[in-house]
Design a protein around this nucleic acid. Structure first.
Lengths: 139, 139
DNA sequence: GCATTTTTTGCAACCATGTTGCAATGTGGT
DNA sequence: ACCACATTGCAACATGGTTGCAAAAAATGC
């Protein structure tokens, strides 16, 4: 598991630093998406707030994680699939945010349906966020 | 046009105040969605920042406007269709945000496709935001 | 029209999220 | 071990949004 973290960083030509190792590991251990706060809570005061923001931004730039918009005004991040690379995301799956436990899931197997947009509109990115009750909370 | 503002406020059992009249009129004149900033810019310092936030919240609660999530960390608002009422939104249309001019459109005629969610997941709300180049900017 | 009750506003203060500049420190390559 | 460069931490700032409370403005009753 630990080697996978190093591998991913090297594959993306990133220097190996404590914060990148720790934060990337957090993503690999988590099944859902993480907001900045989740990371800060999980690392204590090991890293500065700013370092976390910059590390997340670096990962997004490299295509390691992608952002998930939300109505509650806090950007969440989740690991990209292998198909993503620098400057080119392929995260056309939908996201699910649970109203009860606030966990955000990437529903990798639910494809975003194709849309017929009005004339003149050209889509470059589609975000689909479904909220409701997740499979753990509905039991 | 002005009577329509008053009508809408009365229909929702809201007192008629300057801020509500002015802000609601702004929405009716605008074709796209408005963020808090847009409203503040359009009203100068006629109203306090807090008043605008509270007026927007009131309108959302009454089902007059609905929120649009976005990745840039600023909630946008747009007029609801007639079908919306207090505590019960029917805004299952798609939103389009232009990368160039930042205008946010409600594409009322593009329905959100039905989804097949994994077992145990129950959707209560679906937000679909497409970004790209709008029909004005693509000319 | 005036007094009373209820709503709404404005102000100040606060919190959360995110960014920028710069000096100090750590990392990779030789 | 050294050097060049990348990264971190700190302070400060910017924006988006909320809360408590007193003052002002509506609606209500008379």
């Amino acid at each position: 598991m630990h080697t996978q973290v190093i591998d991913t960083l090297k594959k993306n030509q990133l220097n190996i630093t404590d914060s990148r190792k720790t934060i990337l590991q957090l993503f690999m251990q988590s099944d859902g998406a993480l907001a900045h706060m989740d990371i800060e809570n999980n690392t204590g005061d090991e890293f500065d707030r700013v370092t976390i923001y910059r590390t997340l931004q670096t990962f997004v730039d490299k295509g390691i994680i992608h952002t998930i918009p939300s109505a509650d005004n806090a950007i969440r991040y989740a690991l990209c699939k292998d198909a993503c690379s620098e400057g080119h995301h392929h995260d056309n799956h939908i996201h699910f945010m649970c109203d009860h436990c606030s966990t955000t899931y990437c529903l990798d197997h639910v494809e975003v349906p194709a849309l017929q947009l009005p004339g003149g509109f050209m889509a470059s990115r589609t975000d689909m966020v479904v909220s409701g009750c997740c499979n753990r909370c509905s039991k």
